[in-house]
Amino acid sequence: MKAIGLFLLNIKEYLIFSLLIVLSLILIFSNDNSQVRFFRAIAVGFIGTIQSGVSAVPNVFEVQKENQFLREKNIELSNQLSELKEAKLENIRLSKLLGLKNVNLSGVIIASIVNKSLVQARNTITLNVGESDSVKINMPVITDDGLVGRIVSTSSSYSIAQLLLNRNLNISVKVQRSRVDGILNYDGSENVIINNIPKSADVKQGDIILTSEYSNYFPAGIPVGIVSEEGNLDNLFKKVIVKPLVNFTALEEVFVLKHLPENERVILEEYYSKK
């Protein structure tokens, strides 16, 4: 017994090392469970408090420029708003005529970015809105330019959104002109690419890419990017490279869409995939 004790004492470094490796692997493989979300929410709340304090310090050199830009944008948006009101009324009339279901879009939440984590391929942003502002996990994040990403973690006053430039985010998209579908994701280096596009599909440089109706998480029709390059990947598929419409390095304010996947659809799809 004493010999075993001595032996274990001699290899204690290796035992602790093995224990830590096993613990890490358990954590890695149990990502996205409720316990981890709980700890993540506490951590997000803590760091968000510090970051909001830091972001409160104004950059005086930028304020004047930003003011000018916002005035111009305001005028532009006012014009767009009146056009959109007209379009909405027309849309309601046409939807009634065609008998289409309404998209579950009940509004937006305006949010400021209190931190950007543009580190390698784990690109995320921290927003100053959280559960108390009705923000929930999986809600889409957009700007007036297009899709920014998706909420992945929330605390009571802060939330974290994965950007389009995050390897963990896959989005079902379509080409606006030719309605060709595909899955868009970040390849981890410098490109956003669309996968699963057949070689014969009609995709051209300059085509606008939108979110598709097949997406569970994003409402259809949100602009995502423009096709910057297309070529053949192999004998079967095309390689389509997309330039995002949003300038992620200059992002300061975003909108969180109060849009969640339709439960009935999610349950049905999960049920069928398990069968």
């Binding site: 890490s24 692997l25 990502n31 993540r40 984590s117 784990r122 995320t124 992945v152 963990n168």
Partner: peptide, 30 residues
């Protein structure tokens, strides 16, 4: 032992704050 344990705790904290792939930095730092 102090190196591994401090690495694990620091890595795990970083994972929680980064909000993605929990356990990965804990493993690397350990």
């Amino acid at each position: 032992i102090p190196g591994m344990i401090s690495g694990f705790i620091a890595g795990l904290t970083m994972d929680l704050l980064n909000g993605s792939f929990i356990g990965l930095l804990a493993l690397s730092y350990s």
